[in-house]
């Protein structure tokens, strides 16, 4: 099978043999696929320099099965030049994609969501970009969250009230803590629902909520890129944003 002109991003790349590269691509119409770019590490490789994470690409490939062969990879505009903390966030997004999105499962709208998140990391509040991405990713994978009404009785969420979010179900009015459930304010739920995460308390609560929910889908195996953030914070004494 030959595929031409497919929009794609590299999620992960790994040297293979002396001159080749194995890449995990996320493509617009074919979803996540594994591919090999032969000779891409030769000094004058035609498309070698383009096959890097965060570079919008137009890719041709041939073959089927576990590993297709990249025949052309053209840069589509500039690479998304993530730096510093934004770069760590980019790795985090890629790791989430690798862990939660299955191969050969096309997700056209997720492709746009993914691209928007990467561009968002360039100039927006990185934490807010990550939360919105996580929320939209869960919707695309069929695990969308209930954020605007209670699951028992359907009453709308009140900004001033406290709720208990039960993973895999949704929010109920807060009475007392429960194992595995997350206490959260109504205004944080609504902010996440409307994607208007612009104050620190809301961001912190949304992070705790998303971490608990993602944790269930990740099945206990930790995300390596998350470790990177923690250690940067832990090791340094200067304040950062």
């Amino acid at each position: 099978m030959r595929v031409h002109g497919q929009a794609a991003f590299v999620l992960h790349h790994r040297a293979y043999g002396e001159t080749s590269v194995l890449v995990e691509l996320f493509t617009r119409e074919h979803g996540r696929i594994g591919a090999i770019a032969k000779g891409a590490r030769r000094p004058r490789a035609r498309h070698g320099n383009n096959l890097i994470p965060f570079q919008p690409l137009i890719v041709d490939w041939s073959g089927k099965g576990e590993l297709v062969v990249i025949t052309e990879a053209e840069a589509q505009g500039q690479n998304i030049a993530l730096q510093g903390k934004a770069l760590f966030c980019g790795f985090y997004i890629n790791e989430l994609m690798l862990r939660l999105v299955h191969r050969y499962d096309p997700h056209q709208s997720l492709f746009d969501i993914y691209g928007q998140a990467l561009y968002g990391l360039l100039d927006e509040h990185t934490e807010a970009v990550l939360r919105v991405f996580e929320k939209r990713l869960l919707i695309e994978l069929g695990y969308g969250l209930v954020l605007d009404h209670e699951i028992r009785g359907n009453s709308p969420i009140q900004p001033g009230a406290d709720y208990l979010y039960i993973p895999d179900a949704g929010p109920v009015p807060y009475e007392n803590d429960e194992d595995g459930a997350v206490k959260i304010k109504g205004r944080s739920l609504l902010a996440l629902s409307r994607e208007t995460l612009n104050d620190d308390a809301v961001l912190q609560e949304s992070k705790t909520l998303m971490r608990a929910i993602l944790g269930r889908h990740l099945g206990g195996k930790p995300l390596h890129s998350r470790k990177l953030f923690r250690e940067v914070k832990y090791n340094s004494s200067t304040p950062r944003h």
């Binding site: 965060f54 903390k85 770069l87 990177l228």
Partner: peptide
């Protein structure tokens, strides 16, 4: 490379 940049940033912070 992106990994090299990430490493430089991490070490730079330290």
């Amino acid at each position: 490379t992106v990994e090299g940049e990430a490493t430089a940033h991490y070490v730079g912070e330290l």
